[in-house]
């Protein structure tokens, strides 16, 4: 079980405000704006309650730890903490052996780099690696600067 893994528990306790909601028993005005259709779902919210990333169902601990980086990265991106977002996405993108999250992480790492620098060249440097390493991924198909 993911939440019984010590690494997962430590990461959640150190980096997030953990919130548990019952889709049908908690107040509708809390749950409905979150747009959850399937349970369980893990959401990453900013301090205004906006959903910045959503992940349906359970994941094994290693994949869940990557998800924590991605979700935190998306919140950082929307808070204009571009340096922090870059670090989180890059960490997942460069993990060895490659994680299934890597193509997505490369994509958003490039976006975070661009938002920090406004440089198409720097964006292209990241996305080029994505296209070379994961050419058949959906994320490589999206990563076109031409």
């Amino acid at each position: 079980m993911t939440f019984s893994d010590e690494r997962v528990r430590a990461a959640i306790a150190e980096r997030f405000v953990p919130l548990s909601l019952d889709l049908f028993r908690d107040p509708r005005e809390w749950v409905r704006p979150l747009g959850v259709l399937w349970t369980p779902t893990v959401l990453f919210l900013d301090c205004r309650g906006a959903v910045r990333y959503a992940s349906p169902d359970f994941l094994p601990p290693d994949l869940f730890l990557d998800l924590l980086d991605l979700g935190e990265g998306h919140v950082a991106l929307h808070w204009a903490r571009f340096g922090e977002a870059q670090q989180l996405f890059r960490r997942v993108a460069q993990r060895e052996p490659a994680t299934p999250w890597a193509p997505e992480a490369f994509y958003w790492w490039g976006v975070a780099v661009y938002l920090a620098t406004r440089s198409r060249d720097e964006l292209e440097q990241v996305w080029r690696i994505l296209r070379e390493r994961f050419p058949d991924s959906l994320w490589a198909a999206r990563a076109r600067t031409d």
Binding site: L21, V31, C47, G49, L68, G71
Partner: peptide
């Protein structure tokens, strides 16, 4: 130790105060 809050407004207030994201686990009983 993870202490799961059960109250959305309190979680958002804490997130604002601590400048941390909220990790919301949405489930259903049964």
């Amino acid at each position: 130790m993870v202490v799961w809050l059960r109250d959305l407004p309190s979680a958002l207030e804490q997130a604002q105060h601590e400048r941390r994201p909220v990790l919301a686990y949405v489930w259903k009983d049964g």
